[in-house]
Design a binder for these strands. Structure first.
Lengths: 216, 216
DNA sequence: TTGTCGTAAGTAAGCGCTCACTTGCGAAAC
DNA sequence: GTTTCGCAAGTGAGCGCTTACTTACGACAA
């Protein structure tokens, strides 16, 4: 059973680097430190190995939740957006592969999409709650705003190592500015912007436990 | 000379669909309606054919420019963003491929990045001009705001056919909402939002010629 | 007008290599 | 003694690329 796990992880790594056609059974076996024939005894086919690998080792992401009752939108959004970005960033190679090979292997991209899909739904709901609780004056399109923040974070995580010049200097800084901008766009009142983040976080650490900052 | 052009275009199409390894010389020749050996007589190598194909048929994009002197930010930005989105969308398959195969073929992605890079620089400059001309009160980070709008448009163009549920119903509608949101975030005063776009466009059509709406 | 070139293209066969996958056999561990 | 694994060898297919030969066409001198 141990070899099976090792093969799945190795297959996911090799697939992310070399794509479906480039993921030769020999390369996967070498990556796993296993004889090539073990692949066929365990999985029968290269195809089933790779599909199982993406389904199990793909971007799972522990369900990130925004609070049911918003208290400090800026702080809550920033924590959530930070972990979302780090999740997307951690599996950026795999996601890029799945997106580019969607026409040839649709099932693979379906596994990789669940993360952003859930995130978009979650954020959309949160913005709706902001509106219901009076944080937002006037009417806004929650879907467009959610698509905007998710799209920005997605683009940052996917494109920063390819085009570093167009993004703010550090990811942490970037996420903070993105969340601030989207809240301004929504008309949510903000604290004094010069204060930085530490002060806000400390004042609300009790009311809302901070999400784990799992950069990898 | 005609076959050479045909081969370049066919190679770009095949590469976008099947990637480098999947772009066999036989497939490219079939796609171009040409004998396989013509590839080697014209280009010598599969590698040079594909590199020339991406360099020449890649997302070139006629330089989209934002006005040097901003007059109607909402209208100008929306026109610009619409053509930007349609350009990115038109070559989304190729761009996805180049991004996912950047580690194995760095030169290919370099060709595909020029578009977004230029767009980001252009937008950043425009936001700076908005600030200099007094459209924006207070200090804003032009780079973060530019990254946000570009990232949103990029994500919309790249992800809409994969995850249609998370984006506003139509691309036109989406771009309008994105630009409105970013201008709100920047604190640029807007016209009455219920009025739609046509009225604004007509009032300023003389001062600033409209960008061509080149959906393909 | 005829004959002789050069050039661009097609046809067919094949080379050496890698691919996914198979078979048969022996060693070790439970 | 059954299961799990490694090892060696091999199969048919497809890969990039080459070779040898043929076909069509336009230019140009005799």
């Amino acid at each position: 059973m141990e070899r099976r796990e090792e093969l799945l992880r190795a297959a996911a790594r090799v697939y992310a680097r070399h794509g479906y056609r480039g993921s030769t059974t020999r390369r996967i076996a070498d990556e796993a430190g296993v004889n090539e024939i073990t692949i066929f005894r365990q999985f029968g086919t290269k195809d089933t190995l790779i599909h199982e690998a993406i389904a199990s080792c793909g971007p799972s992401g522990p369900t990130m939740e925004l609070p049911k009752v918003p208290v400090d939108p800026q702080h809550e959004l920033q924590q959530w957006a930070t972990t979302l970005r780090s999740h997307i960033y951690a599996s950026r190679s795999l996601t890029r592969r799945c997106m580019s090979e969607r026409e040839e292997h649709p099932q693979l991209s379906a596994s990789a999409n669940r993360g952003p899909l859930r995130a978009a739904a979650e954020l959309q709901g949160y913005i709706g709650r902001l509106q219901a609780r009076g944080f937002i004056e006037g009417n806004v399109d929650a879907k467009a705003a959610a698509a905007m923040l998710i799209g920005t974070i997605f683009s940052d995580a996917m494109g920063r190592d390819i085009m570093p010049d167009i993004y703010p200097s550090t990811p942490t800084d970037a996420v903070q500015q993105y969340t601030t901008l989207i809240l301004k766009a929504l008309g949510v009142p903000l604290r004094a912007s010069g204060a930085g983040v530490a002060a806000q976080a400390s004042s609300l650490a009790i009311a809302q436990p901070a999400a784990p900052n799992s950069f990898t």
